[in-house]
Nucleic acid binder design. Sequence first.
DNA 1: ATTGAAAATGAAAGTTAATATCATTTAGCC
DNA 2: GGCTAAATGATATTAACTTTCATTTTCAAT
Lengths: 143, 143
Amino acid sequence: MDAVNKMEVLKSYLETKGLKSTAQRDYIADTFFKSNTHISLDELLKKVKRKTPNIGYATVYRTMKLLTECGLAIARQFGDGQTRYENLPQGGHHDHIICIKCSKIAEFHNQKIEQLQMEAAKKLGFTVVNHKLELYGYCSECS
Amino acid sequence: MDAVNKMEVLKSYLETKGLKSTAQRDYIADTFFKSNTHISLDELLKKVKRKTPNIGYATVYRTMKLLTECGLAIARQFGDGQTRYENLPQGGHHDHIICIKCSKIAEFHNQKIEQLQMEAAKKLGFTVVNHKLELYGYCSECS
DNA sequence: ATTGAAAATGAAAGTTAATATCATTTAGCC
DNA sequence: GGCTAAATGATATTAACTTTCATTTTCAAT
Ligand SMILES: [Mn+2]
Ligand SMILES: [Mn+2]
Ligand SMILES: [Zn+2]
Ligand SMILES: [Zn+2]
């Protein structure tokens, strides 16, 4: 799904919720949709302020909350104390591996791991709704 | 390793670091060693205050930091915004599955998953130092 | 046992990211 | 254009840590 389509999903979500469209919200969302990193609120605010310097932190915060609600963004907590947001991945769910030296983040997906998780949960009587798998280590450049 | 042995490990760690033994520290550590939950600072403070009401939050905080440093405690972040500490597990490393309704925490370990993680990392040029695997879902009583 | 330097304690203050409040502005339906 | 609900942005509040600092305690050396 590209930025244009995402914007349409957002627009229809706003409509169903009786919310309004604003220039700030649109610009923040668009900027986020075009970013392909795991971006923090501060980073996104900085980006957004380059074109529209009077946008406030709270508006970025609220917009990302909204995007998370309607599934267009995913909030992630890697160990650095800041929430990071990433675009709904087109390849579906993935997990992360983070370099503890340079903070580089790589993504991977392993169906076998996911399946073994389900089985492990089942043995304990749990039904898995979601999961968090993060590997921490050194990337090729840092090891 | 039982509470008594842990206390000895702590004592020798203090010695090598030139730190001092105090009644507060000993009692906090002992209380923690005897707890077998994933306990937060507030919970531990509350427990400790039952016998010694004048102990402060900062001392509990500092003691748990110390125990984490010397490997006798592991700091965990499940999604609830509070750091939780658990005793060094005798069965070695394990992962967690958390009930999103009643917050019950179960533990599991799957060697095959760990191995697949390593392989996934290797493919991306990473060397894994540690990892975090948490499953969230419903326990048998809540599903 | 006394002493003195270094460390520990507990209360209070500071930090930081997240969240809420509120006066003002804006969007969108009539 | 006027009205009403929602959005904005500045500011305040919260919550979990983390640090500071005056006072107390430990412990090695007398
Ligand atoms: Mn990602
Ligand atoms: Mn555990
Ligand atoms: Zn790196
Ligand atoms: Zn449950």
